[in-house]
Write a protein that binds this DNA or RNA. Structure first.
Lengths: 112, 112
DNA sequence: CATTTGGTTAGGCATGTGACTAACTATAGC
DNA sequence: GCTATAGTTAGTCACATGCCTAACCAAATG
């Protein structure tokens, strides 16, 4: 899965923008239509659409259109993949500290 | 803390680059000096240094210099802040689904 | 003290990103 | 069918990002 990496690039890139994070926050409370989603932001609609595209292309969000209104919703799997990467790094780091601890313990025991 | 947001921008931006994620992965296994960190990458050292700067400016990494060698290490608190944001969104989403479930349950009970 | 070694600074260049306006398409409602 | 509404497409522009080379500084080391 070398593709995982490419996806992480896109996901983190997507989350680096406050507008897009705000959209994710909004969508974590439930599906929402384009215009309603856009409302809190004072940017032009096409600009806002670009953000939605970014979110969709990286898989954080999906949408379907019925009639003339397109509704977006969160796709939590992708969110979790990012979360997993982060927690993996942190747990590696913590394990290393544990090893360091027991190494220091050993040293102490030897000197006793 | 409106500053939290600005920091998240920088952190996710930092993690959006595969070189920088690789550095974080390396550092989660323990502190490392600049040149050794740079070795696996075929980019010029100044380019690589820029990546380290990005990681340091957003607080993911810290460094100190002794003699002429600078050693980098992971700063896991920042990592956790990003992780927390992600898990908050996901848990909001999950809670909403639960509510939806019990809403549907209620409907079902009423019709019985 | 001359030289290598580890790291840093400066400046330049191609590409990517995020915003805008203007013009367009397609459904809904009267 | 006409008009308003929801969304889309196209094209432009300023600025940020990521890479490079060249030159530099500072601590080992012979």
């Amino acid at each position: 899965m070398p593709n995982q990496m490419a996806e992480l690039n896109l996901v983190f890139q997507a989350l680096a923008d406050p507008t897009r994070r705000a959209v994710v926050e909004r969508l974590s409370r439930g599906p929402t239509a384009t215009t309603e989603l856009a409302q809190p932001f004072k940017m032009a609609l096409p600009s806002f659409l670009q953000h939605l595209d970014v979110l969709q292309k990286c898989g954080l969000v999906q949408s379907r259109k019925s009639g003339r209104v397109r509704t977006y919703e969160l796709a939590p799997n992708t969110l979790r993949e990012a979360e997993d990467w982060l927690s993996a790094q942190r747990s590696l780091w913590e394990r290393r500290l544990d090893q360091l601890d027991s190494f220091l313990e050993d040293l102490k025991e030897q000197s006793e």
